[in-house]
């Protein structure tokens, strides 16, 4: 029992620093002369000191901290995780683009060469080494001049007319060029051995493509690369290609 009538909770509020200034001042004066209150204050202070340990009694686990941090982390770090698949995808696309560009550069080089041959043929006053509409004349003419053999389809009765042939060089290799008339259009058929670097970017079986305003169809068969190029309509190019495929098939 305390002899002093001072309210313990006022002493607590004093320690909390929450007493009004006037009350604080008068209490301080009282404390100077009251051993009971001084003892009470000391006891309360020691209780508070002991209570401070309650502040660190429960520490969050590192796992939970990480989890919470991830929960509130700014979107950018969340975005970074998303960025990985995106980066991989971007790289893949770039790689594809590089490969595709390389391929298409190769194939457009090949096509340009073919187109040049066709144009030079159109421009030439004397375009043919062998002038004949007879396939049995044209085909044997190439024997011994080119290191491969091919068949010429029978054009009699078709929309096409064989105009002639000549020996050309395509991708630094000897190649056979046949000129085929289709109405008023001239179509070049180029046949070379597959295997030069330029040919590798080309499709094995392609539909008719448009290159430099020419229609072109190309394919590869039994080690030979065929090109059919001309300003005739796409259907005509395709039909001629089919005729060539028919006699140079499997």
């Amino acid at each position: 029992m305390t002899a002093c009538s001072q309210d313990r909770n006022v002493l607590a509020a004093y320690l909390d620093g929450e007493l009004p200034a006037a009350q604080e001042k008068s209490l301080q004066e009282h404390l100077r002369g009251c051993p009971e209150c001084a003892a009470e204050i000391a006891a309360q202070v020691s209780l508070r000191r002991a209570m401070k340990l309650a502040a660190t009694r429960f520490a969050p686990s590192a796992d939970f901290r990480r989890k919470l941090q991830a929960q509130i982390a700014p979107k950018r770090s969340v975005g970074l995780r998303w960025l990985w698949p995106a980066a991989v995808a971007t790289l893949a696309v770039m790689l594809l683009a590089v490969v595709w560009t390389r391929q298409s550069t190769l194939s457009s080089q090949a096509f340009r060469e073919v187109a040049d041959l066709h144009i030079s043929d159109l421009a030439s006053a004397n375009p043919y080494d062998v002038v004949s509409s007879d396939r049995h004349t044209v085909k044997p003419w190439f024997q011994g001049k080119i290191p491969f053999a091919f068949n010429v389809p029978e054009f009699a009765g078709s929309e096409f007319t064989l105009l002639g042939g000549r020996l050309v060089y395509l991708h630094q290799q000897p190649a056979a060029q046949l000129m085929v008339g289709a109405g008023r259009h001239k179509i070049s058929v180029l046949i070379a051995q597959q295997g030069s670097g330029l040919g590798s970017g080309l499709p094995f079986f392609g539909g008719v493509a448009v290159r430099d305003s020419f229609n072109v169809e190309t394919w590869e068969k039994n080690g030979l690369r065929f090109y059919v190029i001309g300003d005739a309509e796409q259907g005509a190019i395709h039909r001629l290609a089919q005729a060539l495929q028919g006699v140079n098939g499997s």
Partner: peptide
């Protein structure tokens, strides 16, 4: 009221 400052000290 019966918990004296001394008892409080001990409890701490």
């Amino acid at each position: 009221h019966e918990v004296t400052p001394e008892a409080l000290f001990l409890a701490c």
